[in-house]
Design a protein around this nucleic acid. Structure first.
Lengths: 124, 124
DNA sequence: TTGACATATTCCGGCATGGGCATATATTGC
DNA sequence: GCAATATATGCCCATGCCGGAATATGTCAA
C-alpha cells in the first residue's frame, strides 16, 4: 500500500508544500477566495481547488459562499495535533540536552535542585 | 509530479504514521537497535529498516554501530521546523477565538475603553 | 434566456511510495 | 575458513498521488 490517504490524516495533508503555502496565506491574510489564492500563489486554479478540497476534507479549512466566490477560512485548531506532537520534542532543542542528560536532570529534580545546572552540550 | 520526495522534506517524512511511531519510541525509550524497534512496533524488519533509512536521509535519526547492531538515535532538533510552523497557529486555539470573535472582542474593548488600539490586523 | 465570471470536477499519464519477499552485506564467534 | 546473527537492499506490484487540460457546475447581471 502507498502512503495513507492524504484526506484522512492531518500530517499527510500538510505534507504538501503547496498546501502549507495555502495555510500560511490564509493565516496571514485572513479568509480568501480561490481566485485570490490563485493570484497570490501563482498556481493554476484547478490545482488550488484540489488542494483546498483536501484541506477541507481534513478540516483544516472551511468554506463560505459569498456571491459567486467561495471564501476559505483556516480552521487552525485542526493543526493542534501537529503542534502537540512536535511540542513533545521541544525540550530537546530548547535546552541542549540529550537523553542521558535528561535522565540526570530528572533524577536531580527529584531531590530538589541544589547546584546550578551544568551547561554542557554535545554539538554535531 | 507526485508528492515531494519523502527523503527531502521533514514534513513528508513524518507523514507516515509508522515513522512517527518510530520517532515516538526513540524519544520515549532512547536509542534503539533495529531489532528492538521490530519487536516493539511489531513490524517486519525490512519495513523498519526502510523507514529508518528515510528518517536518516532527512536527518531525523542518526546511526551508530555497536557490535553487529546499529543504534538509531533521534535527532530531535530536525523536528524544530515542524514545531515552529505549527506554533505559528498556536494563538488561534490558545485563546479560544476564531477570527470573528477576535474582531468582535477588539471592537467591544474599543467601545468600552474608548481608547485607540494598535490596529495590527492585516500585516503581510 | 444568454453570457460572463468563479470554482469544482473529471479524465489522463507519470511516478514515487510502501508492503512483501528474497537476498545481499556486515559483524561476531568458532 | 564457516556459520550465525543483525541489518540493509533489490525487486515486484498495487495504490494513490499530483499536475495538466478540458469540461462541468454554480452564480450573478442584463
Amino acid at each position: 500500500m502507498p502512503r495513507a490517504a492524504t484526506t484522512s490524516d492531518v500530517f499527510n495533508a500538510i505534507a504538501e508544500p503547496r498546501r502549507r503555502d495555502i495555510i500560511d496565506v490564509l493565516a496571514r491574510n485572513g479568509d480568501q477566495a480561490v481566485g485570490s489564492l490563485v493570484v497570490t500563489l501563482r498556481l493554476p486554479q484547478p490545482a488550488v481547488s484540489k488542494h483546498l478540497g483536501v484541506l477541507r476534507k481534513v478540516g483544516i479549512v472551511s468554506v463560505t459562499q459569498r456571491g459567486q466566490q467561495r471564501l476559505y477560512r483556516l480552521e487552525a485548531k485542526s493543526l493542534q495535533p501537529v503542534h502537540s506532537w512536535a511540542k513533545t520534542f521541544e525540550r530537546y532543542w530548547t535546552q541542549q540536552l540529550d537523553r542521558i542528560k535528561l535522565r540526570a536532570e530528572r533524577t536531580a529534580s527529584e531531590r530538589a535542585a541544589h547546584a546550578p545546572k551544568p551547561a554542557k552540550k554535545s554539538a554535531p
